[in-house]
Design a protein around this nucleic acid. Sequence first.
DNA 1: TAAGGAGCTTACAAAATTGTAATCATGAAA
DNA 2: TTTCATGATTACAATTTTGTAAGCTCCTTA
Lengths: 125, 125
Amino acid sequence: MKKIKLSSTNQINKNYLEDICMGAYALGIIGSRWKLSIFFYLKDRPMRFSELKQSLGSITERMLALNLAEMERDKLLTRIVFAEVPARVIYELTPIGKALTSVWDQLGSWGRQHKDFLLTNVSDG
Amino acid sequence: MKKIKLSSTNQINKNYLEDICMGAYALGIIGSRWKLSIFFYLKDRPMRFSELKQSLGSITERMLALNLAEMERDKLLTRIVFAEVPARVIYELTPIGKALTSVWDQLGSWGRQHKDFLLTNVSDG
DNA sequence: TAAGGAGCTTACAAAATTGTAATCATGAAA
DNA sequence: TTTCATGATTACAATTTTGTAAGCTCCTTA
């Protein structure tokens, strides 16, 4: 999937934090660049690879495939392949994946609050 | 604070996502390695630099100072300096910072759920 | 005058993430 | 037999994040 150096201080710190803090653990699973947005689209309905690619606009096929593979590995979604040609593959959130919805909504709500707050307090440069 | 290349595809994608998705925006502010744990300690009470350093165990002074500075810039916390020698500085969450508490709790709760789920479904290698 | 403690800051290096471009497998259809 | 579309994978490069080690600035006390 990707090569990481297990013995690096970086990894050791990451593991330590994910061990003592479930929030850090959760972010380790879903905190990378595109995953939140992939989730955002899939929460309404299953979508196929090309649909996601188009919806996400500027994502590359590599990043999309990589993120989907990690999300499948982490049981956030299910990959369903139809034996057709050309290939058809759909991605669907699992129950544990869907369970993120309310957390995401809350996080987004906090984000909006924070953005508004910064706009209101225009005193900073 | 840190040098980023504003014209990179990386930055452009980041900005784009943070623009259309408030969750991504929120993660941009609080999603890095140590911030969650710093928050975790500060939510109970203000703490000084050295206390945080000790609590976080393996964090370096550089990373702690860097993260605290970013969190201050983003109005998550307030830095209070006492005119003493040796210096005494305490860090305290702002209201908007504290408002993250319930989101974090929920995220952590999801994380635990997810971890348990993986342990229960031991069928994967 | 030297040492010391708290809270940083700096230059540098390692590691991880993200992006680019090219290629691949399938099997139907031209 | 070549072409086509979909859903990838690969080798590589750029960018960003994280860590290392040293030093700096107060002012106080020895």
